[in-house]
Design a protein around this nucleic acid. Structure first.
Ligand SMILES: [Mn+2]
Ligand SMILES: [Mn+2]
Ligand SMILES: [Zn+2]
Ligand SMILES: [Zn+2]
Lengths: 126, 126
DNA sequence: TTTTGTTTTGCACTCCAGTTGCATTATTTT
DNA sequence: AAAATAATGCAACTGGAGTGCAAAACAAAA
């Protein structure tokens, strides 16, 4: 499974994620590339990028979908259990290299943890 | 601001949250009380309950809204910075009394943290 | 390079959580 | 009881996300 053909859409989206490490929301991509491709194509290409282990996805503060580059993932091995940070001032979203500290919960098994931090980013931090 | 009038809808929803400490999703409430009130009313009453510091809200794993009782909050003073736990087996969602451990991020100010843990709850933990 | 088989795309639709405007109804105040 | 105000129901709308299918693009074979 995964990307097979190097189409125009695939190249454009791939280039966009290579430009920077920041996460990008789906709605941003749809708006940004509305002249180049259909939103359905964007959803489908992102889906495949995730299958391939090239991108991972998560939900921002409104429950909307964001994508960011993986770090050493493959189609068979995803490990993206890191926190994400959304700046309340400029809206930028980043992956944080920090470890997630899972609190000890008696009689429960924790499999997945989603952590979204909000505040001021490096640029907006005065 | 907040709830002023004791209407039938307000009483029904209040009673529902008094029954148990577990969180309830908006869609569950809409389905459960479809015979008693309109979904718009449910959204509006929950909104006010949150304003009043009686309930707090958060997003579940699909980005859909959940509500749960606050613990000592008021309209002027909300402090609901605890993690939430969603059971992947039975779907139940709870507030966790544990503290959120915010990782140290250089040059960033963290104001809010959303933590959603997923796994097996007490009942589903074999 | 042309033909062939397969994948990808665009389009028009559907779905669903959540929201809004407005007329009607319920509650509170006088 | 009447007046003032707040809550409700309804229907329509919004916006993110997903689908089915015919047309277009691509890769590989001829
Ligand atoms: Mn990330
Ligand atoms: Mn909670
Ligand atoms: Zn910023
Ligand atoms: Zn469970």
């Amino acid at each position: 499974m995964g990307i097979v053909r190097k189409t125009k859409s695939v190249k454009i989206l791939h280039d966009e994620f290579e430009k920077s490490l920041a996460a990008i929301s789906v709605t941003t991509l749809i708006e940004r590339f509305s002249a180049q491709m259909n939103k359905t194509t964007i959803y489908r290409v992102l889906d495949k990028f995730e299958d391939d282990g090239y991108l991972h996805s998560f939900l921002g503060k409104n429950g909307h979908k964001w994508y960011a580059k993986c770090n050493g993932c493959s189609s068979s091995n995803h490990s993206d259990a890191h926190p994400h940070f959304q700046c309340s001032n400029c809206g930028k979203v980043d992956c944080l290299p920090a470890d997630v500290v899972i609190p000890k919960i008696p009689n429960r098994i924790v499999d997945v943890s989603q952590v979204l931090l909000q505040g001021k980013c490096e640029q907006c931090y005065s």
